[in-house]
Amino acid sequence: MTTPAPVRPPGRVQRLLRRPVAVAEAVIAQRTVHLAPEPPGARSGVITPDGCTLPSPGTEGALRLEAVGDSLVAGSGVDSQGQALTPRIARLLAAGTGEDVAWSTHARLGSTMRRVRYRFLPEVDQADVLLVCAGSNDLLARRSLAEWEEDLEAVLDDAAGRARHVVVCSAGQLYRSPVLMRTLRRVLREWTDAQTEASAAICARRRVPYVDVAHCDLAEGFWAQDGFHPSAAGYEMAASMVTEPMLSALGATRTGSPLRQDH
């Protein structure tokens, strides 16, 4: 595992000089980087504490996990939806709570937080746990920090009425993508740092757990074949990180114990 080294903030002149180079490198990346598609498979299901999969109709009494977001939620980089982030979280939650977990994914490749706000979040209702995961495409689209903050605030306002517990996950580590060029990666690191800091502050004010996967160690074999999205190992790493605050919020441990006292 490797930890991203601290970045010394560049001066104003250096930032101005980097910008056109980064824009040019982004154009090159759009033409040369072939992104992994969203994998096929069902985007909902039920998982038992022993890891078995049940038909989706058998959801009565199950803990409800919903996830909204971008390609990290849609599972780009793996071969099937069953290997993607949401069902991996569901398996860990089922094992940790001792309950069946009914999971559902609402996401698309290329989605920004604004699309989450207006398209995917309205599809969620009465979830026990809701994962919100976006940000990378906001960075790539050069949306302003003010726009990001507005959309995240609005998403959390809406999510509070749709789920008992909400967990937010940061953008990924695009600045370490092996298929992006050097100056673009540096600029993306600066923007990622700013977005992460703003997001953490918003979530802290609302007492919403925030998982920073933008500055963590990367598991061995983290990158998928496209060099842009996580592999199966990458999604397993992220699932483990995201599940911890979910179990804490639910009042359970990984050893498993009945928990839903208010249901």
Results as ranks from 00 to 15, higher is better:
Tyr118Ala: 05
Asn137Cys: 13
Trp148His: 09
Ser144Asn: 15
Ser144Gly: 06
Leu121Trp: 12
Asp138Thr: 08
Asp125Trp: 08
Gln126Pro: 01
Glu123Gln: 12
Ser136Tyr: 12
Asp125Asn: 13
Phe120Val: 00
Ser144Asp: 08
Ala134Cys: 12
Leu140His: 04
Asp125Ser: 13
Glu123Tyr: 00
Ala127Leu: 02
Ala146Ile: 07
Leu140Ile: 14
Arg142Pro: 00
Val124Gln: 12
Ala146Val: 13
Arg143Tyr: 08
Leu131Ile: 12
Asp128Ile: 05
Ala127Lys: 10
Leu121Tyr: 13
Ala146Cys: 06
Val129Trp: 03
Asp125Pro: 05
Pro122Ala: 07
Arg119Tyr: 03
Leu121Cys: 13
Arg119Phe: 09
Trp148Arg: 00
Asp138His: 11
Pro122Lys: 02
Leu121Gln: 11
Leu131Arg: 01
Leu130Phe: 09
Ser136Asn: 10
Arg142Met: 05
Ala141Met: 00
Glu123Met: 12
Arg115Lys: 08
Arg143Thr: 03
Val116Ile: 08
Arg117Gly: 09
Arg117Gln: 08
Val116Ser: 01
Gln126Tyr: 04
Leu140Met: 11
Arg119Val: 13
Arg117Cys: 15
Cys133Thr: 02
Phe120Asn: 08
Val124Gly: 04
Thr112Gln: 03
Ala134Thr: 04
Ala146Glu: 13
Val116Tyr: 03
Arg114Gln: 06
Cys133Tyr: 05
Asp128Arg: 03
Ala141Arg: 07
Arg119Gln: 04
Arg115Asp: 06
Leu140Arg: 10
Val132Tyr: 10
Ser136Leu: 05
Thr112Gly: 09
Met113Glu: 01
Glu149Leu: 06
Ala127Val: 04
Trp148Ser: 00
Trp148Val: 02
Leu140Tyr: 09
Ala134Val: 01
Leu130Asn: 03
Gly135Leu: 15
Leu140Asn: 07
Arg114Thr: 13
Arg142Asn: 13
Cys133Gln: 07
Glu123Ala: 11
Val124Leu: 05
Met113Phe: 10
Val116Leu: 09
Leu140Cys: 11
Asn137Gly: 01
Val129Thr: 02
Phe120Trp: 14
Ala146His: 11
Val116Thr: 08
Met113Arg: 14
Ala134Gln: 01
